[in-house]
Design a binder for these strands. Structure first.
Lengths: 206, 206
DNA sequence: ACTCAAACTTTACACTGTCAAGATTAAAAG
DNA sequence: CTTTTAATCTTGACAGTGTAAAGTTTGAGT
């Protein structure tokens, strides 16, 4: 597990710490992560990380950003694969749950001890907001744009579905929850109901 | 903060550790909790907890059980306050979110690093299952019992609503989620929709 | 070739969980 | 009422943790 190196300088320690750290979180769990362990795994002294991060928290943040980036790309890739907006929305729901089911440690790592900021109001510019949420929001907005719901009502619906997906993913990634079926189907079912009941409002704004 | 005592034996150390531990989690956060700190706060040496718990994990489990118990009682108290089942269900939804909004650290503590087992299938006897879920499930079952849904379909609906409440509570207790409205209203809205669309199935079982 | 700042190491300290050995004492047994 | 016993608590130790300070190495720019 422990790497050696011949040069005094590692040349890419910052990235190595991030990626090795994520690997530890993924295989041994969030609690097994430590600065000294990740330093050793990179073949570097225990205080070396302090050349690149002020403290443990900062490395964790960088790891979370890295994961968020991969997550965003995975969500975005569902947009390319299809051109039916309603279908994209379903694919994205599946992608959302799948990403965390395939890497269960990520969910707790990202959402429960994280510094990631998510703004569900309409006040903050998209590029300062949590990217996976924006990607999801933009797709649902496209669907809802065909209706005559007010902007607030649309935002309300978006948050409702997001909360559901988030809840399902949380349950799906918990060790000790026994559920016989596939959580992804649950998301699809929910979106079906949503699309049936919300997408034919062509009347007045409410 | 640190207590003193005159007798060599504490007489109630086990409970003291549990309740003081919960207080630390609640005020300083999950990560601030340590065996040595809670021992000191109880006025006892750092290894004293090992007379009552095999390790840190066991004390954490006891604390989680204690919280779960209080949570269960809070949910159950909504049943007494009302006799309209549909209203009880809403009250319980409010109680669910409120419990964790009032003690935000509890949510992460209970659900993300917990050993609590939740069985969403129909296979396990209620008394071996996660009590708050059973309390909630029994109320919704009472409502659904008036319909003609199959047992599986009923269980399906119950899980859907539970996942939503769980997701909302998760978002509501996250530090860095900005949401302008009251999450409890979101739960109520959801239950209204549910009661409208699911509670008038009096036809064949599906 | 020299300088210098960035990258890394070493040493040190306080804090953590846990174990083993010992001290105290409440309660059971005589 | 003494004696025994076992539960409870203390002390001391050890490895592991995050982090600060001081020292070392080395690549890059003058």
């Amino acid at each position: 597990m422990e790497q050696q190196r011949q040069t005094y300088h590692h040349k890419d320690l910052r990235n190595a710490l991030i990626e090795t750290g994520i690997q530890i979180v993924n295989t041994e769990g969030v609690n097994a992560f430590s600065l000294r362990k990740v330093a050793a795994a990179c073949g570097v002294s225990h205080a070396a990380p302090y050349s690149h991060f002020q403290n443990k928290e900062e490395l964790l943040e960088a790891m979370q950003l890295f994961i968020t980036d991969r997550f965003s790309k995975q969500l975005e890739s569902t947009v390319q694969k299809n051109n039916n907006v309603a279908e994209i929305m379903k694919d994205m729901g599946i992608a959302y749950v799948s990403f965390f089911v395939e890497n269960p440690a990520y969910f707790q790592f990202l959402y429960s001890q994280s510094n990631i900021k998510i703004d569900l109001s309409l006040s903050i510019p998209d590029d300062q907001n949590y990217k996976p949420y924006i990607i999801y929001k933009n797709i649902v907005s496209k669907l809802l744009g065909q209706t005559h719901y007010s902007e607030e009502k649309q935002n309300d619906i978006i948050i409702t579905i997001w909360a559901f997906i988030h809840g399902v993913t949380s349950l799906a990634t918990m060790n000790n929850v026994n559920y016989d079926n596939d959580w992804r189907e649950k998301v699809i079912d929910f979106m079906d109901v949503f699309q049936l009941s919300f997408l034919n409002n062509t009347g007045e704004k409410i």
